[in-house]
């Protein structure tokens, strides 16, 4: 606990706001709820959308809450239609994706990782990825975006890679 506290003060996570979203029709959110609790216990401020949200609802929530991180969880392959629509609405409303960390989690086939990144996603997490890696990646990405770092990283599936190694 002490370590957590110290970590939190260094990283100032409690000023980082994360929206965990469940867009689409799938009715399972155990994973999303577990993630919410993990992130809260790691010191972030977490907002959960609940199940069955439309693309418009998710994008509007991210916009109004002005979140630092938007994490979207999918189980049913719905990411292919939802991710582009949500990011599109955000951009139309003046959100700069260089200003928000975008994560996608769930059953995403490997051959689609690149496509997600090209859309503006920063990290793709598949089931089994240790949650610590999610929080580490959030901290790294927030710093890279804030500092407009020339060294940008992505997370694809189970590993952290540099932008230039993305194929």
């Amino acid at each position: 606990m002490n370590g957590d506290l110290k970590m939190n003060m260094v990283l100032n996570r409690n000023k980082i706001k994360v929206l965990v979203a469940k867009p689409g029709l799938d009715g399972h959110d155990r994973g999303a709820r577990v993630l919410c609790r993990f992130l809260r216990d790691s010191g972030y401020e977490v907002i959960y959308t609940g199940l069955h949200k439309t693309a418009e609802e998710v994008a509007n929530a991210a916009l109004q809450e002005d979140v630092d991180v938007l994490g979207m969880s999918f189980l049913s392959g719905a990411h292919e239609s939802y991710v582009p629509r949500i990011l599109d609405i955000l951009k139309k409303n003046g959100v700069d994706l260089n200003d928000m960390v975008i994560l996608v989690g769930g059953t995403i086939p490997e051959e689609q990782f690149k496509k997600m990144i090209d859309l503006g996603v920063d990290g793709v997490f598949i089931p089994g990825a240790p949650m610590d890696e999610i929080s580490d990646f959030i901290d790294l990405k927030i710093k890279e975006k804030r500092d407009k770092s020339s060294d940008q990283h992505y997370f694809v599936g189970t590993k952290l890679i540099k932008a230039e190694d993305l194929v």
């Binding site: 809260r40 216990d41 959308t49 609802e57």
Partner: peptide
């Protein structure tokens, strides 16, 4: 928010009427 980690689960929005 948690007095230990400073983290918080902001759960009020969950109750906001949605399309579903």
């Amino acid at each position: 928010s948690s007095p230990f980690t400073g983290g918080a689960l902001l759960g009020d929005r969950l109750r906001l009427g949605s399309l579903s």
